[in-house]
Nucleic acid binder design. Structure first.
Lengths: 335, 335
DNA sequence: TCCGGTTATCGAACCGGTTCGATTTTCATC
DNA sequence: GATGAAAATCGAACCGGTTCGATAACCGGA
């Protein structure tokens, strides 16, 4: 590996001039610039990013920390961020916390140690300790997906209240009254907002919510399955189930299939968030989806802004909330 | 941030002693070790990983390069690698090439620049240039999924011939003769092996393969859809379709649904590789799946071996090939 | 020709560690 | 108490860059 000293020797200038020429070609005479350029080419010099980061105190890497890279929701976001970062000569490091706050914290600290230029974080926790931790980070950052109260950072996400409300309204329009809701962990902002959307829409329609119809699915497949089972074995079954996320809704579909219920014949089903291959699932589930592409674009642009422009870096935190989109399927019938 | 000099000053020893004590506690008197330990605790010293990597010429990071992190196939592998690496104080950086060889190459070079300790690579290309590139890498590495001829590195993957053969045999046993095959890109080892498994099993059963029944699905959803359509509009339709991977098979299912064919009533379907939520897809697709957990475990152990043990590093490249597993569904009927 | 002000280049210190040969200390042995 | 080998510690060089104050070269104007 050729070093900057090799280049300096060959070009017959000092090391500092080479460094200057490479990072700021304008401040060097065209003659020496040429000498240096050809020397660089001759020895095939490429700056060592590690040494650069050490000296500069920051690298050109961007950390992306998510709870589950396999989730297609993160797929578009990752792609957008990667593409945009690449255009601006930055490089995305993906890390997966498996949804565990301790691991997330370790990963973030590791990334900070790597002197990343910026951080895109999908928070996996909440509470004062967690907030304190995130707030203590000095890196330019953008949070997304999960809005955490108390974290004063840019946030990009969807209107989850609206998501819950839209589907509830849809079911009401179809004549459903006995609507069940498989909820997520209430401490999560997305979960509580979706829940609120359901509850308030029901209330404003003057329909009472049967307490037995609201069960906790923890946003996971297994808990969702159990929750769905609890709904389905009730003597007075709901006529429709609204899953607060894709995992619990599909777990409910599985439970329905196993118990021999027809969807939508016996019970209607709808969900928030898409999954891969949803269009080969029978029935096609009616859902509300997030505009992940747009979310990713906003995250990318905002983060790069904060990284590259000192002005933007000084701006106060801002929320970017997108409206979700209704995608009709054939899993809900009129009653 | 406290540096090693702060620790040295407080403990009243030289910087080099601190460094030695921290990396090799045994070679320092217990008295000074104690002094240093308490000094470390007092100032909250944590070594800067960047400076360490620069000085040592290698970091404690492991690069994982895949074509699509969203693919659940990579999910287990990633998880296994991360867990195992963490146990050995290594840290996994995930990068996604989107299946593009140029990007993959850029990513790998970037990771090498970061002086990663090891590389787990799912090759996204083939051909002499590509082979030369991979062979030129001096990092401990393990390739997986796609076996590339000419690359002399450890390889971990599944027996794809067997995968194709098993499903073909299954369909033959059920009485099918007009079996169609939606193939992948033939330059990919996995694709050609699965294809070979199909062809040879048919041959040894004495069943002729109708050339119109072998179509190219490129392992992608869109190409698979088109390929399936070509199969389904033939006057003499196949009675069964074998998808060489999950994407083409599910695309075929979609095509069948859209044309009003019943599966398995009209046409049987089976596939290689699972997808998330396959058990809520109707019908449950009969498939052969890879033991991704085990694959991940082997990749992780082998890579860490090569990284940590000089003996293992010197060993010749080795192939680890696992048998896939048959998972019956209800998408294939007896004819 | 001399002067003041840019502009170009340089040297040295620094980022925060590691490494290794040299020096000092320790301790068992004679 | 002297001797020598082993153990402990140190100093300096190094990894490969950046940065900034200082010096040198250049230029137009008096």
């Amino acid at each position: 590996m050729a070093t900057i000293r090799d280049v300096a020797r060959l070009a017959d200038v000092s090391v500092s001039t080479v460094s200057l020429a490479l990072s700021n070609p304008g401040r060097v005479s065209s003659k020496t610039l040429e000498k240096i350029r050809s020397a660089v080419a001759a020895v095939g010099y490429v700056a060592d990013p590690l040494a650069q980061s050490l000296a500069r105190g920051r690298s050109r890497m961007i950390g992306l920390v998510v709870g589950n890279v396999g989730n297609p929701f993160f797929g578009d976001i990752r792609r957008e961020l990667e593409n945009y970062a690449l255009e601006h000569e930055h490089f995305v490091l993906i890390t997966d916390s498996s949804g565990k706050p301790e691991r997330e914290q370790a990963l973030v600290e590791h990334l900070i140690g790597l002197k990343i230029a910026g951080l895109a974080l999908a928070p996996s926790s909440f509470g004062p300790d967690y907030v304190r931790f995130v707030e203590s980070l000095k890196v330019p950052m953008v949070c997304f997906d999960q809005k955490v109260a108390g974290i004063e950072r840019d946030f990009v996400g969807s209107d989850n209240y609206l998501a819950g409300a839209m589907l509830t309204e849809h079911l009401l329009q179809l004549g459903h009254r006995r609507i069940a809701f498989i909820a997520g962990p209430q401490h999560m902002h997305t979960a509580s907002e979706r829940h609120r959307g359901f509850v308030e829409t029901m209330a404003s329609a003057g329909v009472e919510v049967n307490p037995n119809y609201v069960v906790d699915g923890q946003f996971t497949r297994s808990a969702g399955y159990e929750a769905a089972m609890r709904l389905l074995i009730q003597p007075e079954r709901p006529t429709a189930i609204l899953g607060a996320n894709n995992a619990v809704a599909l777990a409910a579909l599985q439970a329905m299939q196993e118990l021999g219920f027809n969807c939508p014949g016996d019970i209607s089903l709808c969900m928030i968030d898409d999954v891969q291959w949803s269009n080969v699932i029978t029935p096609r589930i009616t859902m509300v989806v997030q505009d992940t592409l747009k979310l990713g674009g906003i995250i990318a642009r905002r983060l790069l802004q904060r990284i590259t422009s000192p002005d933007a870096a000084a701006e106060p935190a801002q929320d970017f909330v997108l409206a979700p989109k209704f995608v009709p399927g054939n899993s809900c019938r009129r009653v």
